[in-house]
Design a protein around this nucleic acid. Structure first.
Length: 351
DNA sequence: ACCTCTCGAAGAACATCGCC
DNA sequence: GGCGATGTTCTTCGAGAGGT
């Protein structure tokens, strides 16, 4: 039994995006930038504080001999975990330095609306396992589509602690009937609040993780549900015995859920046995689909897309994909370095 | 080969505020 | 007045660098 862990740098998503753009602007040309480099960029824009101070004073107060106790260092460390999940950072030469992914320039240079759409797509594409973030626990899950689907099958509402016991604690979301089982599980919990609390406590005991900490894990997920406008946070009465803060699907969220049902959720494991020509072509193809879903016009690339579809034909058939628009796969978050390099080279040949 | 020590990743907790 | 959200700070642990 293990729990999917999200870092807890905060829950203000727009700030995290703004921070990313600031870091990108400062370090765009730097290869293998470190936590300290990024910290300096954050400081420059007044985006972090430490011990009640900002700017260089914050740096001064934050620095410890033991780096693991350095608060600003830790802040960026947690940001970096999330950016990696989103496919915005990729590992550099070491575990402690980073490079920007292809997406970075789109995010930083995009109009406000585009950066939000890119965030949404990346959020939906967060999936474990993946090559960017190690997850030692081994949970297999694409959490956000699962959450949307759950809510829409449960009176349009989901609660924080349900998210922990039913989603973060889920071991494998690809098992047959797992979705239906999870719905039933939550319906049963909803008979009374004590049952939910008991489940949370049980999970805490089984995993050795404090309930406090488990709740820390939900900050980014819940912040994201709000930021995207898929959910509203409000006091919900009538589901549990007492009134409780919950998250209610908006019209926006309902539409997104519906859209997702038409897509084929692809995990890297399903394609890893194909040869690199197929995988590389598919990687490039999926990047066009990804950008289109972010709102970019790709009609000019139609001939390339047709060619790539042919080149990855076996793979697409294997997945049961008839048209590229149903591909639900983020190359920035799921593809290996080998596949990305192949795709890049292929792309340059088309120009 | 084994030992030691450092450091970063991961994990946990504290502090405070606002709201029901 | 208690709960939840959030920003911030503190703790644990194991990998691996470097010494013997």
């Amino acid at each position: 039994m293990s729990v999917l862990r999200f870092p807890n740098p905060g829950s203000d998503i727009s700030k995290m995006i703004f921070t990313y753009i600031a870091i990108f602007k400062e370090l765009e040309t730097k290869r293998n930038f470190t936590h300290d480099d990024a910290r300096d960029a954050m400081i420059k824009y007044g985006l972090v504080s430490s011990s009640g101070a900002i700017g260089q004073e914050a740096v001064r107060r934050s620095v410890r001999d033991d780096r693991s106790r350095d608060s600003l260092y830790n802040q960026h460390k947690m940001y970096s975990e999330f950016y990696r999940m989103l496919g915005w950072y990729k590992p550099g030469t070491m575990n402690t330095n980073f490079n920007f992914t292809e997406l970075s320039s789109y995010i930083a240079k995009a109009e406000q609306d585009y950066s939000k759409r890119i965030f949404e797509e990346c959020l939906l594409s967060i999936v474990f396992p993946n090559p960017l973030v190690e997850n030692k626990k081994g949970n297999i899950i694409r959490p956000f589509p699962f959450i949307l689907r759950l809510a829409s099958n449960l009176e349009g509402v989901i609660f924080r602690d349900e998210l922990i016991v039913a989603v973060l604690a889920l071991q494998n979301d690809t098992l047959v009937d797992i979705f239906e089982k999870t719905v039933t599980y939550i319906k049963d919990l909803r008979k009374n609040k004590r049952k939910l609390s008991a489940e949370l406590k049980k999970l805490s005991q089984n995993t050795g993780i404090q309930t406090n900490t488990l709740q820390n894990y939900t900050r980014i997920p819940l912040g994201s549900l709000k930021y995207t406008g898929w959910f509203n946070r409000k006091t919900i009465r009538g589901i549990y015995s007492a009134a409780m803060t919950g998250f209610e699907l908006t019209k926006n969220g309902q539409e997104k859920t519906k859209l997702l049902t038409m897509l084929k959720d692809i995990r890297h494991e399903e394609i890893e046995n194909f040869d690199i020509n197929e995988r590389g072509s598919f990687t490039l193809l999926s990047s066009f689909v990804f950008m289109e879903r972010c709102g970019y016009d790709i009609t000019n690339f139609e001939p390339i897309i047709i060619d790539l579809t042919q080149k990855s034909n076996n793979l697409l058939n294997h997945l049961g994909i008839r048209h590229h628009s149903s591909i639900f796969y983020s190359p920035y978050q799921q593809a290996t370095e080998e596949e990305l390099n192949f795709a890049k080279e292929l792309d340059s040949k088309y120009e």
